[in-house]
């Protein structure tokens, strides 16, 4: 039988006090470790791209062409490593260093494609393909237009 004492007490802190308490007990992000790792993984990916560009330029390709080809190769590598289930492990270690380069962009497109293939090509892959990259594209392109406009106006005056 339910006793008379039931539901009388409650925990003795207010939500505000609890928010402070919760902050104290929650481990801080490991910023220094993450930054160092991101620097090396991001740097490594960029260095691979640069080595490819240099080799292609040495082989007689025009610089802008070599840059395009190197980007395409990095996108391919990002896609391949995502498909092999390796890229998320690299990103777990490298964080933003793996997320920001073009390989990370490839990963953000390929991972939903893999994940939602089971929901079909329309409702799954088609509608979810840009679930991670979509906001980046929308605000990236919008910002670039805005900055371009400001630049244009600055040139006039």
């Amino acid at each position: 039988m339910a006793s008379q004492n039931l539901r009388q007490p409650t925990i003795g802190v207010t939500p505000d006090e609890y928010q402070n308490l919760s902050k104290q007990f929650t481990p801080k992000p490991t910023v220094v470790k993450n930054t160092v790792r991101a620097f090396f993984i991001g740097g490594l990916i960029c260095a691979i791209g640069q080595v490819m560009i240099n080799l292609m330029v040495m082989g007689g390709m025009a610089l802008t062409q070599a840059q395009t080809v190197a980007t395409a190769v990095l996108i391919f590598l990002g896609t391949l490593l995502t498909g092999l289930g390796v890229y998320d492990e690299i990103a777990r270690f490298g964080g933003a260093g793996a997320f920001i380069p073009v390989t990370g962009f490839a990963n953000s497109i390929v991972s939903p494609a893999l994940e939602f293939k089971r929901e079909g090509y329309v409702a799954g892959v088609g509608s979810r393909l840009f679930m991670v990259a979509g906001p980046v594209l929308v605000y990236g392109i919008s910002t670039s237009i805005l900055v371009g406009l400001i630049y244009y106006l600055l040139l006039i005056f």
Partner: peptide, 17 residues
């Protein structure tokens, strides 16, 4: 993961909490 967070192969770092 796929319902509450992100695709399973999406590369990211999880917070310490």
């Amino acid at each position: 993961e796929r319902q509450y967070r992100l695709p399973t192969e999406q590369g990211m770092q999880r917070p310490m909490s």
